[in-house]
């Protein structure tokens, strides 16, 4: 479990001093898919960078499976347990080819050669870039570089996988493929996923949604709970998933919308239910 207690951080000094995180308290259990939302500059990235000890708490504490991120002797163990993929893949490409880059993390874990090649093969296939394995990183498009970075963490198989807008440059199919793969790892290996995103439809598929606003936790619950508080969503500079927006517009127009639908399938069932209820009402009246 990741335990974050009273975590605070400031950047800058004097008149430019800004509180980026302000007394954050939260636990992240094994096997959960947690989406982290918030407007730009709200502190999402700063928060997750504390989990694998890239940043150390200025105040408060972060523990990963009981290990304090401020303890320099546990740094290696913590980073083995919690891996992060950044938004800009150029900031974390280390090797010359796709294959070597994907193998970098498992090699550093001291695994056997067979185990490394099995993991690299599976990760490249999972990310859908097996055919790019011999390509030089410099020949890749922005999205292909992101997929290489994602393959790297999949091959590493840490207990806590942190994705900091790591699929922002991907086409919808590549994005859903990465998401499916991560969900599968979560189910099969009990991996915990922390997924920072600006795509509300991705957040709607999570087990838990945490909204950070001005360095504080503004909401924490299931997608249904969090997206039901429309006022809060707007106050935090976010928006509802498209189908939920439609539900709200229909409700505001005076339609009897029984609940908020977060995806197309559920929304279609809801609208179809509204038409069926009207038919029933008419039949009852006649």
């Amino acid at each position: 479990m990741i335990e974050i207690r009273d975590l605070s951080r400031t950047y800058g000094s004097g008149s430019n001093k800004a509180h980026v995180l302000h007394g954050i308290d939260m636990n992240i259990e094994r096997g959960a898919f947690t989406a982290v939302l918030g407007k730009n500059g709200c502190g999402k990235s700063t928060l997750v960078r504390h989990i694998n000890a890239i940043l150390k708490p200025q105040r408060g504490s972060v523990r990963v499976d009981g290990m304090d991120t401020k303890d320099p002797r546990r740094l290696y163990d913590i980073r083995e347990k919690a891996g992060i993929v950044f938004q800009d893949p150029d900031s974390q490409s280390v090797a010359a080819t796709v294959e070597d880059d994907t193998a970098f993390a498992p090699e550093n874990l001291g695994l056997s050669e067979d185990e490394i090649s099995e993991r690299v093969e599976a990760a490249l296939r999972a990310a859908g870039i097996a055919e790019l394995r011999k390509k030089s990183i410099s020949e890749l498009s922005g999205g292909q570089k992101q997929l290489t970075a994602v393959a790297g963490i999949i091959a590493m198989r840490p207990d806590y996988m942190i994705f900091d807008e790591s699929t922002s440059m991907l086409d919808p199919l590549a994005r859903s493929r990465v998401l499916e793969c991560v969900m599968r790892l979560k189910r099969e290996l009990d991996v915990s996923v922390i997924w920072i995103t600006h795509y509300m439809d991705e957040a709607a598929a999570a087990d838990r949604v945490v909204i950070i606003n001005d360095g504080k936790i503004a909401a924490d619950g299931t997608p249904e709970e969090v997206f039901s508080d429309i006022e809060l969503i707007e106050r935090c500079g976010l928006e509802l998933p498209p189908c939920a927006q439609l539900c709200v517009m229909l409700k505001n127009a005076g339609y009897d919308v029984p609940r908020l639908a977060l995806n197309a399938h559920d929304c279609a069932l809801l609208i179809s239910g509204m038409t069926a209820a009207a038919v029933k009402e008419r039949e009852g009246a006649s």
Binding site: L173, C243, H265, A268
Partner: peptide, 15 residues
């Protein structure tokens, strides 16, 4: 082309 549909077009198909 390996592209998806906008969410509202998916809803249209589901309906």
């Amino acid at each position: 082309c390996g592209l998806g549909l906008p969410e509202t077009v998916k809803l249209q198909k589901e309906l």
